[in-house]
Nucleic acid binder design. Structure first.
Lengths: 122, 122
DNA sequence: TCAATATCTCAACAATTATTGAAATATTCA
DNA sequence: TGAATATTTCAATAATTGTTGAGATATTGA
């Protein structure tokens, strides 16, 4: 998803608050299936439901999450294309003929896909 | 550069302001050599020098830029390892056995290194 | 329909962050 | 040394953003 400056600003603002950053990381780890708002609230510890609701809709407004209703619950999940787009926006035009400058970023991102292969704490 | 939550929050907060995001993108495109504060200010249009100075030190404080003095000028440049670290922090643990979820992000980032090969608007 | 569950909206207040302009610091060159 | 250049610091004010708690909306099953 190609992003413009306004969208990137909204996304970065949304990610610059502790509870919201934790929610995004929780849902990134949860994968495409997502989690109900109530469960997300429990994982966040002592935040009121109205506060969690506010943060969830802020994140959805910023395009970083999407939601669907399932019975009484609203299920939120990470918007993976938007996250990719944000990464691409930030690093766009980073090389100008010197790929070694941004290749470490590519390597860092690639390594996230290998989590399960790495032993926890040998 | 492996990042903790506090560092990531500071970085996202720094990136969530229009002038600062533009400064980072200007310096990402400028590469490791960077640019003097005064030139950055000119590129940002009508912002006062104190405002630019404030934003530059905010970004340096957040670890996204570094500075060095050269004569009367202070040269700012992008902290590429921190940018990579931020990308890695955001997407850490994203797959859980399903690499197809975050591979688009890897592809988006890889493509930034090919800017010069792509014709502008065919 | 009614009670229970899950989540959201709203308004008042608190906290954080941005902007401005004047003055201070550091460097260079005559 | 003193004037000119480049940049930073500071304090006051303006603007934005976060929090709280009460009440509203939507859904389910008895």
């Amino acid at each position: 998803m190609r992003m413009n400056e306004k969208q990137a600003l909204d996304a970065f603002a949304a990610l610059s608050q502790e509870t919201r950053l934790r929610i995004v990381k929780l849902l990134v780890a949860a994968g495409p299936e997502g989690m109900p708002a109530g469960v997300i609230g429990e994982e966040m510890g002592g935040a009121s439901s109205s506060r969690i609701s506010f943060h969830l809709s802020h994140l959805e407004q910023a395009g970083l999450l999407q939601s669907r209703r399932e019975g009484r619950s609203i299920i939120y999940s990470a918007a993976f294309p938007a996250l990719s787009g944000l990464v691409e926006f930030l690093m766009r035009d980073c090389c100008h003929g010197h790929p070694e400058v941004c290749n470490p970023a590519v390597a860092a991102l690639s390594s996230c896909c290998e989590t399960e292969k790495v032993p926890a704490h040998v």
